[in-house]
């Protein structure tokens, strides 16, 4: 499903300062950003530019120092922790560079966990949905495995399944391919493109221009400020090489 003009997530004058350092470090210096429903947005920038801080601030994981964030018209920044957590549970999904899983649960249980928590009474429905997701991403055969018994690519695909199990409106990915080799990277990016094509909004932080080339739009951060953005339009497999070159050239101009 292509992106629409409707804004699903928006932040205004977003700032974030870490007071644990001496002197305090301001990592976000007033960011205005709107993500459209169904959009695949990539956030890029050099190390320390504030990409991850932006991702965690707009997803309610961290409290921004200033500014506000709204998701589907609800202001996250004014909500209390249990409420934001509920929003993360029901409307958001997360994928990280490292696949964080509970080692005392098998793959299927790890994927089931947030969905079961969201709708504990519809266990059968949740299990059926998760089974379908695992089949879709090709990890159905390892569902009873422990997390140390599967490959990195399989784990990351399990992460995607977990992120999707609650049928979120928006998916956040923080360097999801950062710890993977090239074939696994392709595997995971194919899966994400697949998710996006299904209509899920995607916000992804990455260092990899090839991964960034899959996005509808790339925004570029420098010293906590949004300095540039580039519309790429819908991705197709055939057009992949040309887009990668285009992104690479654009990033080179910025000294990336």
């Amino acid at each position: 499903m292509p992106q629409t003009d409707q804004v699903t997530l928006e932040c205004e004058s977003l700032t974030k300062t870490y007071y644990s350092t001496d002197p305090p470090t301001q990592v976000l210096n007033g960011i205005d950003l709107a993500v459209k429903r169904g959009e695949f947005l990539v956030v890029m920038g050099a190390s320390g530019s504030g990409k991850s801080s932006l991702l965690y601030s707009i997803s309610g994981m961290d409290r921004p120092t200033g500014g506000n964030v709204t998701l589907e018209g609800r202001e996250l920044t004014s909500m209390k922790d249990p409420e934001v957590s509920r929003v993360r549970l029901t409307s958001m999904g997360f994928i990280f560079q490292q696949a964080y899983f509970l080692s005392n649960l098998n793959i299927q249980d790890n994927i089931l966990l947030p969905a079961l928590k969201a709708t504990p009474k519809d266990k059968a429905g949740v299990v059926a949905r998760v089974d379908a997701l695992m089949e879709r991403f090709g990890i159905e055969h390892v569902k009873r495995h422990g997390i140390t018994q599967v490959s990195g690519g399989q784990l990351q695909r399990a992460s995607i399944c977990r992120a999707l199990a609650g049928e979120p409106t928006i998916l956040f990915a923080d360097e999801p391919t950062g710890a993977l080799n090239s074939s696994m990277t392709a595997e995971v990016m194919d899966a994400l493109s697949d998710v996006h094509s299904g209509g899920t909004t995607l916000v992804m932080v990455t260092h990899d221009p090839a991964c960034a080339a899959r996005a509808d739009r790339i925004v570029y951060l420098k010293d906590g400020l949004l300095v540039d953005s580039r519309e790429l339009g819908a991705w197709t497999k055939e057009d992949a090489k040309r887009r990668e070159d285009e992104v690479f050239a654009w990033l080179s101009e910025k000294g990336f």
């Binding site: 098998n106 299927q108 249980d109 266990k123 009873r144 495995h145």
Partner: peptide, 21 residues
């Protein structure tokens, strides 16, 4: 890993009867 695998195979959230995750 073997111990862990054995354990996680036995425990299942899907088969867990209660609702308090």
């Amino acid at each position: 890993a073997k111990r862990q695998a054995k354990r996680v195979r036995r425990t299942s959230l899907a088969a867990f009867r209660g609702t308090n995750v």
